[in-house]
Amino acid sequence: MKLLSIPNIQSEQDKMRRAKISIIGAGNVGATCAHWCAAAELGDIVLLDIPQTEDMPAGKALDLMQASPIMGFDSNIVGTTSYDDTADSDVVVVTAGIPRKPGMSRDDLLGTNAKIITSVAGQIKESSPNAVVIVVSNPLDAMVQQMWKVTGFDSARVCGQAGVLDTARYRAFLAMELGVSVEDISALLMGGHGDTMVPMPSCTSVGGIPVTQLIEEKRLEEIVDRTRKGGAEIVSLLKTGSAYYAPAAACAQMAEAVVKDKKRVIPVAALCDSEYSVGGYYVGVPVVMGSGGVEKIIELQLTEKETAAFQHSVSAVKDLVAAMDQLLSS
């Protein structure tokens, strides 16, 4: 029996490599992000955790690889505890840090996670100096500020995942309220990731119909309040952890915007200086996201009420960053 020879295609593979997505933190959010990214065939994936986790990242990566014949994706997935395996990543998603537990606010994580992010940022700077970095760790707005400060990357290449998640929760609750498809709901939330996030009713519609024509103001505010507390609601239900399906899906959407140069108009935590008169802090705003990361910040004409709420949210972010800086310097 004569075996067929397979032509050498290595040279073509060298020219046409897949995007490389590294995920720092192989816990629930990180592993689920790897799952979403692999299923969408966004690129090859490296799932990294600290050395103390030993073979855990490799086990999760192998499990995902064994799902590939069933689900029909060809992404290569590697689990590791070495940053050497993440070298020259196109996108780095950072989920590292301790999660919230019942009774904890995002701000309660500040001191511990700031030190973790400082260490991770230094490693990313060395291993993937050209990557777009998407930070997920809480408290989000302070953590992405610290990532940018330590890496020294162009601010366009460092952003935070919060707005996509918050808006998704808002859209889900609106769809549940109205009994309509989530696909027909377009919405926007701005500001910090937490209790001061700012709803934008003027930018919320259902099949093109302003939401204010479908839901009374009082009920709409109740839905917004549930959105603000969306993460805490899940923490209280899980009892031993925090949300991960939706946060991971939001990360994957942002990674897709980068590796496919989608030019998506989505809300993310981006560095705003003169924009919205923020003065050099990361806050949630609508942006155009593509291969360069945050390629444009979209400035909206806010109402007087929206402006006041946004400024209040920015003040909370500034206080959080100041508290972080004090903890890191002590």
Rank of each mutant, 00 (worst) to 15 (best):
T80E: 08
S105A: 15
V93S: 06
V211P: 01
M104V: 08
G280M: 06
G207D: 06
A232G: 07
P247K: 09
V78Y: 12
T303G: 11
D154H: 13
A114T: 07
D319C: 13
V150R: 04
V93T: 05
S202P: 03
R226C: 10
L42N: 11
R100W: 03
G122N: 05
L48S: 08
A322C: 02
S128F: 11
M190Y: 06
V259K: 09
D88R: 12
G208R: 00
E304M: 13
V224Q: 04
L64I: 03
G207R: 01
T53S: 14
L42I: 12
S127I: 15
L3F: 11
T81V: 15
L238S: 08
Q13W: 14
A249H: 01
L302W: 01
V29P: 01
G207V: 11
K260S: 15
V93L: 10
A31S: 15
P51K: 04
I116P: 01
E306G: 07
A31M: 08
T212C: 04
K229I: 10
E222T: 13
V314F: 01
T53V: 14
T303F: 02
G292V: 13
V317C: 00
H312P: 03
C37R: 05
Q123R: 13
S181C: 06
V317Q: 02
R171Y: 02
L237H: 09
V136Y: 00
E233S: 15
R264K: 14
V135L: 06
P139F: 00
E217L: 05
T227L: 02
V278K: 01
A39G: 14
V182K: 14
I77E: 05
